[in-house]
Amino acid sequence: MKIDKNRVDYVATLARLKLSEEEERVYASQLSHILGYIETLNQVNTEGIEPTYNVIDHKNIFRSEDLKIEKEENKSLFENAPELKDSYIKVPKIIDV
């Protein structure tokens, strides 16, 4: 699969990555190259094969509400926030896309 500049643009927008023109050019060619290699998978007949997305035991794991957990303040949030205002996380204004 050849990745052109439009596709790179679309994917970078989906991934919220600002790329320079140089990066766009390089990624288009590198991704095309990598996908070319990846397409060797087309040699494998996978008809009727269930995909595997994880390799864990199929048995439920739950959290129980009865278990009382001591709640501490979320220090990781408050100490790392780039901008904080009255315990709100502050960002420049959100305009809807």
Binding site: R16, L17, P82, E83, I89, P92, K93, I95
Partner: peptide, 23 residues
């Protein structure tokens, strides 16, 4: 760049902040 980590200093709005901080 919203809750922690690097936040690009010159973003006009939240969308811009995403693109620049991640880029």
């Amino acid at each position: 760049g919203v809750r922690y980590g690097y936040r690009s200093p010159n973003s006009k709005n939240a969308i811009d902040l995403y693109f620049k901080s991640r880029g």
